[in-house]
Write a protein that binds this DNA or RNA. Structure first.
Lengths: 366, 366
DNA sequence: AGGATCGTTGACAGCGCTACCAGCACAGAC
DNA sequence: GTCTGTGCTGGTAGCGCTGTCAACGATCCT
């Protein structure tokens, strides 16, 4: 290591080839398809490259080959914990592969998404990961015309552009409400923020489950376009309570809101779950640790990102998955905050994650 | 829009030049330095480019110009809330500039960092943002030899490679302990996880403050190399209590741990702050919303990322900042969890963020 | 033995853009 | 009128790599 380079620090493929005693094109092949070389040349090129500390010039490669080894990723937010898990999965899958990740943030704007898509596509990415299924018509057309594999993540729906991996937010919300019904709750409020398409579909699931039971009332729903936060959860819940003091449960569109609701209950000395049950969404780590432990709908975020990137890379390399649309499902993780069997959370054991009851469901469309 | 392209979707600069009736090189200049063109040609090229929907081929540009418009960013973790705020700042600053962000994750390994650095540098990035000041000697040498501006973020220390923006974790921890002393606490425990260099320096600050007061005992310190989590905060605190039941305060190396400690106190019916005070670090959003509200040391994470990227871009464009090392400082945000004036948190008003008392300090080295 | 096939290698010609330098017109100085 | 400088423009020559195709010897088949 630390071997000094020739002037201006650039070792070209030609130098490696010369040292190895092969032609540049043979050296080039070594880096792209080592199997194509004889063992002798392979080792010669390998040691020459190592000795010189050769690193390929990606710009030249991209120019010559008319394609890049960049996977474009479009997500709506960097702040949201949900996406950091997904991203981690994507980055983990990309490591070890020869592809690098180019990330951009749409800020929940499909117009911004369209603009970024245009930019990405112009650089001929090897593949693309986009969030959700609600693109503009123009974006949709660009994606369909793109000559690279594409994975839509976070949800599943009809007519994928190419590949798709996620779960049904609608079904997941219905499952959460069904769980609350099973625990004997009837007047169930909905608290939601940001109201992006996925949160909207959770709301739809809530509404349909409530309507099916003849329990839906518009007054039970409190939402805002404001980005989500714990504090906001408390505030929205306060609004809900002011409007409907007799609710017996709250379904929160995400876990931050649920934590805010829990704190607000504590502030108001409302017993959870005795007076009000709480169910969150995503099952972030802290849900199992709260007091009382908080029920949530577990979503496989890391796995979603990881599988999406893995599928994409396979597809780029010409091995299309036999299953282009993958439903990762969800699980209702029942904890103290919604358990009618729960008597005294104050004496509950530390951690609380030991005896989680899980209700696993693959999501399904209707 | 949606104008169709010529075959294979590629519009080259030459086509734009032809339509505009200028030479390719003139068209090229339009995109790099419009001022150098006469107004007439400028408008001609502009409308030609728009009409054809021209998007530059970045690979060709990079190859020809021997430099990229990529800013490399090396951070230790994608999961950590702290870094998602920093990243958001970086991405926000890069938007609107012509630079794009290339992100990589060192997973808290300086060896991995060195490897990534080598990779990044080989592609001649326009600039580099690296986390912290604890690089390997080899990394350090590479950074110093790099012919692009570099910003080290998250902390400040002696001998910056180039630019530096952050704050003193040591001083911030000392300030937190000083605050606890002022509230009358004496037996103050330390809870830390992951123990990366910055957490280590917070521990150092804690130790020095405690020693200065003649109160330090090794038994008050509980740490682990395990990545941080809320649950872990509870577990570490349980260890600490088992060892030292008579502590009257806990300083947590981050807010997740602090939340875990709060939940564990609730589980054990330990009154906060009456029996045990809690102070966290970073001041994540939920700290102001917890019950009781949680004291923390506010760090300017978004601003750190944003300013770092802004400074870097300025430096790339040849305008080096007059202030290459920037201390963003910190603030101890005093809340109920460590306030001796706090009597009954159960009746405290919603949100609790209204009357935060702030103790602002620029960090300083000694 | 002759032909076909395979595995391996190399020559050539760009990919689309920009660095460099030269050239031109025009203005001002002498 | 010539010279110099300035502002703008264009020609030439690559940047470092890979796609394509051709060539070669070795192997296999009939």
């Amino acid at each position: 290591m630390g071997r000094k380079r020739t002037k201006s620090g650039k070792i070209r493929l030609a130098e490696v080839a010369e040292l190895a005693g092969v032609s540049p094109i043979t050296a080039s092949r070594f880096f792209r398809n080592p199997e194509a070389l004889s063992v002798a040349k392979r080792t010669r090129v390998e040691s020459a490259a190592r000795e010189l500390g050769y690193v390929p010039n990606l710009a030249a490669r991209a120019l010559a080959s008319q394609r890049t080894e960049v996977i474009g990723v479009l997500i709506p937010s960097l702040t949201n914990n949900v996406f950091s898990d997904v991203l981690r999965g994507i980055y983990d899958a990309s490591e070890g592969s020869r592809y690098s990740i180019q990330l951009s943030n749409t800020r929940y704007s499909i117009l911004q998404e369209e603009k970024l898509l245009r930019l990405f596509l112009a650089q001929k990415p090897a593949g693309l990961i986009v969030t959700g299924i609600d693109q503009t018509a123009e974006s949709r057309a660009m994606l369909e015309a793109a000559d690279c594999p594409i994975v839509q993540i976070m949800e599943i729906g009809p007519s994928p552009v190419d590949m798709m991996i996620g779960f049904s937010h609608y079904d997941a919300a219905r499952a959460a409400i069904t769980h609350l019904f099973a625990q004997g709750h009837r007047r169930i409020g909905f608290v939601g923020a940001r109201m992006d398409p996925r949160v909207q579909r959770r709301l739809d699931g809530y509404v349909s489950a409530m309507k099916d039971a003849g329990l839906f009332e518009q007054r039970l729903v409190v939402t805002t376009a404001t980005p989500t936060s714990v504090t906001l959860g408390g505030a929205l819940f306060a609004d809900l309570l002011a409007r409907e003091p007799d609710i017996d449960a709250v379904f929160c569109a995400n876990d931050d809101l649920a934590l805010g609701v829990l704190f607000e209950c504590r502030r108001r000395e409302i017993a959870v779950p005795e007076q009000i049950a709480i169910v969150g969404f995503n099952d972030l780590e802290f849900m199992a640790s709260a007091v009382p432990t908080l029920t949530s709908v577990r979503t496989n975020r890391y796995e979603m990102g990881n599988t999406a990137a893995t599928m994409l890379i396979e597809a780029i390399d010409g091995r299309r998955p036999e299953q282009p649309v993958l439903d990762l499902g969800f699980k209702v993780i029942e904890r103290q905050s919604s358990s009618s069997r729960h008597q005294d959370n104050r004496l509950a054991a530390s951690g609380g994650g030991a005896a989680n009851k899980m209700v696993a469901l693959p999501s399904s469309h209707d």
